[in-house]
């Protein structure tokens, strides 16, 4: 317990971090140089420096759209995760539910989410609601699958120890199932949060008058390709930040499942 909560940065991690920073920098540099060298028009592929410039100049204009996208994404994501945990808990703790619900779930997840947006628009009109719903729907599946798998793979001997003590199904879920599932849940949440952005932007490009998706849609109509890329950059940055946030939470809450790292550090 003593050092599981403090984040210790070892030389190994410094090396790792600087390497990934270098790779990112190198990628943009290569992009810049390639565009200059091959005389690529900014109508086709703008240079990173141009994109950064647009981002800087139009930031006040882009900010409300970015917050809108972030807001719908987070609301949809939270709704999706809550629904996913509930569904996963039901499916994972009963064999019958597992067998019955799985084909349905796979069926739903196979539906392209683009096809769902117009339906949401018919039901709720264009704007924020369909964006939230799309983001929720798209992030449910990975959470359900991971929570259900985590619960279903509990060691039978551990369950026996609890049953002999007279534990109810609820006791088992609370004391064994859910804590055991946390690492699975976080793994799925990292995937789900990036998918949530996809869902939101998808819906915004189809039916909204606000949000990064909408900005990109209009910008591409005006052949303002640097602005389109600026939107993409904003999305990528928000996605990375959220992903990192969940990775940090994962590290703090499920350190017990990451003993390899700690052993390597010790």
């Amino acid at each position: 317990m003593k050092n599981s909560l403090s984040v210790v940065i070892s030389p190994e991690q410094v090396r790792q971090l600087s390497l990934s920073a270098l790779a990112t920098l190198g990628f943009f540099l290569l992009w810049e140089v390639a565009c200059l060298g091959f005389h690529v028009s900014s109508l086709v592929l703008p240079r990173p420096s141009e994109i950064a410039q647009v981002l800087w100049i139009k930031f006040p204009l882009l900010l409300p759209h970015a917050t809108q996208t972030l807001y719908t994404t987070l609301v949809g994501f939270v709704a999706g995760v809550v629904a996913g945990i509930a569904l996963g808990a039901i499916i994972g703790s009963s064999k019958l539910a597992y067998d019955v619900a799985y084909p349905l779930l796979v069926g739903f997840s196979c539906i392209p989410k683009v096809a769902v947006v117009p339906i949401f628009v018919v039901w709720f009109g264009s704007g924020t609601v369909p964006a939230i719903l799309t983001s929720a729907v798209i992030s449910v599946f990975p959470v359900v699958v991971n929570v259900a798998t985590g619960l279903a793979s509990t060691e039978p001997e551990l369950e026996d120890v609890f049953k002999v003590l007279g534990a109810s199904r609820w006791d088992l879920l609370l004391n064994v199932g859910l804590p055991r599932t946390l690492p699975y849940l976080f793994a799925s949440m990292k995937i789900a949060v990036t998918l949530s952005f996809v869902g939101t932007v998808l819906s915004e490009t189809v039916a909204a008058n606000k949000g990064i998706g909408n900005v990109m849609m209009i910008a591409s109509g005006n052949f303002d390709v640097p602005l389109v890329f600026a939107g993409l950059f904003l999305l990528a940055i928000m996605g990375v930040v959220l992903y990192a946030l969940f990775a940090l939470m994962e590290f703090k809450l499920t350190g017990w499942a990451q003993r390899k790292n700690e052993l390597a550090m010790a």
Binding site: L165, P179, W256
Partner: peptide, 28 residues
């Protein structure tokens, strides 16, 4: 009833002490 298997089946997220106290959380 107390039960122990060949496999110690501890809960990895709890300390040894908390693991030992698990039955007290469950038994009536």
């Amino acid at each position: 009833v107390g039960l122990a298997f060949q496999n110690p089946t501890m809960l990895p997220w709890l300390s040894v002490l908390d693991n030992v106290m698990v039955p007290l959380k469950i038994v009536t």
